[in-house]
């Protein structure tokens, strides 16, 4: 059992990183740390894919010197998937950062819990105003 962990250490590392990233994304109140968690989570998947695609002792699948036999090359598909995945995760983190900037401008804090607290305050005030308006109506 333990030896399996040692031979597949890339996969084990990527699983640990995935959980670390996911927990950060889920539980960190700080928005920037959330984004870092997201990036760790995505990168762990790319590590996993890259490790799966690598075959000991073979070369990158780039056609040089007229060697056409597939036996000489590693599996190119996971690398392609990693590239596509990187593009996706870059755009997602950019979107998250844009959201963070907007939230910071609005509430001048990066802490999501504090933002929620301010929001609840705002809403209670608004509700108070509304009830006040309704009372006025009934007079």
């Amino acid at each position: 059992m333990v030896s399996t962990f040692f031979t597949n250490y890339e996969e084990v590392a990527s699983c640990i990183l995935f959980v670390i990233g996911m927990m950060n994304l889920l539980l960190q109140p700080n928005l920037i740390k959330k984004i870092i968690g997201l990036d760790i989570m995505d990168c762990s998947v790319y590590l996993f894919l890259a490790a799966k695609g690598y075959i000991e002792g073979r070369h990158a699948p780039i056609y040089v010197d007229g060697v056409t036999d597939a036996v000489n090359y590693i599996n190119p598909v996971p690398s392609g998937l990693v590239l596509t995945g990187i593009v996706v995760s870059v755009s997602v983190s950019a979107l998250m950062m844009a959201l963070t900037i907007n939230l910071y401008r609005e509430y001048s804090t990066l802490n999501l819990d504090e933002i929620m607290m301010k929001l609840r305050q705002e809403e209670t005030e608004k509700l108070g105003r509304l009830t006040y308006g309704a009372v006025e109506d009934e007079e």
């Binding site: 995935f18 989570m41 979107l95 998250m96 959201l99």
Partner: peptide, 20 residues
């Protein structure tokens, strides 16, 4: 913006799980 952040966080966890 707060709704969007909460939506994104849950969605990204979902797509991360899907990807792995």
């Amino acid at each position: 913006y707060v709704s969007a952040v909460r939506y994104m966080v849950m969605s990204l966890i979902g797509s991360g799980l899907f990807l792995i």
